[in-house]
Amino acid sequence: MTALLDVADLRRTALQPACFALQRGECVAVHGPSGAGKTLLLRAIADLDPNEGEIFLDGHRRESMSGPQWRRQVGYLPAEPGWWADTVGEHFPDWAAARPLIEALGLPEEARHWPLTRPSTGERLRLALVRALVVEPRVLLLDEPTAALDRLAVAAVETLIGSRVAAGLSVLWVTHDEAQAARVARRFLHVEAGSVREAAA
């Protein structure tokens, strides 16, 4: 069986050639010191920066589809997500689809009408996670999605992503928290000084 996401010889500035694969419904944790290139790796996979090499999604080359088509299937949640409109609700084309997820993450239904100055950093991270999930990507690249959250919220995020992984979503999860890495993943990638390699648990 072919992997869902197959990264073959991915190259970009500040990163050494990277090779690894992600199975369907698999969550792989990515760790390594700050500034090692974890974010650069995720951005290259999402095709947000110039990069070379081959990436396949379910056997299809990345270049066989447009950038937007690729990014709808390979979602990326940055550590500091951006917002383009004035209220929270405007960032969700289909609020009805987002609402159960927003409530599952401990945020109120009224959040829809919040101005963007209202939510805290942690609330924004959770809203951005929902925003990325409602696109229904097949692969999700998470860049420290629980960095600014309290324990309850961390548990809610881990449960929500866990249920999506069980339903077939493949996840690459950057985290500095070793205990979290052990909870969410059984495989690990270690990034250090721009080189990406498979790591033991």
């Binding site: 947000l48 990014r71 709808r72 979602g75 990326y76 997500p81 990325a132």
Partner: peptide, 8 residues
């Protein structure tokens, strides 16, 4: 701008 690009 990139947030929108990320969402496709």
């Amino acid at each position: 701008v990139e947030a929108r690009l990320m969402l496709g």
